[in-house]
Design a protein around this nucleic acid. Sequence first.
DNA 1: CTCATTTCTTAATCTATATTAATTTATCTG
DNA 2: CAGATAAATTAATATAGATTAAGAAATGAG
Lengths: 155, 155
Amino acid sequence: MKRIKVKKGTILQHKGSFNHKVFQVESGLLRSYSIDEKGKEHIFMFASEGWIIADNVFPDQPSRLFIDAIEDSTLIQVEKNKSMEHDTEKLLKRIEVLQNRIIMLMSASAIERYESFIDTYPDIVQRVPQRMIASYLGITPEALSTVKRQRRRKK
Amino acid sequence: MKRIKVKKGTILQHKGSFNHKVFQVESGLLRSYSIDEKGKEHIFMFASEGWIIADNVFPDQPSRLFIDAIEDSTLIQVEKNKSMEHDTEKLLKRIEVLQNRIIMLMSASAIERYESFIDTYPDIVQRVPQRMIASYLGITPEALSTVKRQRRRKK
DNA sequence: CTCATTTCTTAATCTATATTAATTTATCTG
DNA sequence: CAGATAAATTAATATAGATTAAGAAATGAG
């Protein structure tokens, strides 16, 4: 367990690696994401101050996600095993978030998912480029532009 | 903590309720699902022998999911708090499954998600009506029919 | 077993979002 | 600061999957 400082853009974990790390964010902003066969990025989660980010894959499996820094960040890096073992509360919270995300992906339109995102993570919206929000929502940047225009019209 | 037997079709938890229960499946098959504003069902997960199923929402919040029995089932019902607290291993496994599901929903086509589903849960495929598989995959039964036809053609 | 109900399939049409491409705006680097 | 590079927007077109509708197959209840 050690404190590290990383610059914006630093890749902390590569897909395919076996040394799974868990990062607790002291300051700054990280993201985890996959890249599909077509080379397209899909952001799995953002983690700002106080959040924990990791690729939730078992130790004998290669990681499926990249993790990198969206802002200059200070992190506490923990070994996978030790890390979350105790903090059941945090695990349950994470499961709740993931459950919610799945329900949204299955039942809500792009507009609804965007609304929900800015309600739930208003701070993240300010700090992250549009294309990453689109990636998190599971749509293209072009589609997000259209969604935002539609919202403007409505008001 | 008690053992209960339920008939196919029994609803074990309603959306909106506050007495969140956790069920461990001894035999049979359960599912959890949400119903959106248009009245459409979206299956969140299946649970067969050995699996645990619950609505992962915090105690002070209304449940978002229904849980019911797809087959006659024998269950062990546990109070929310006691249940998963210790079993970190199972929680991490669940997080892995959910992570995988999200990545699939964001990056894979209906055909790919279907292939992945039958690879991962070949037993479930046999025991569940097509429309429920469609619901789990996030597509309509009509679209699933088409997907299956396309697969047949290929082979 | 038989009729009724539900599920599954097929086909035609529609729609949300993807793709492509061009333009504008913002950010980075020397 | 100026040019270069990346990001965001807009518009035109394409497409995966939704919707609608109808018939076929399976399941269920009496």
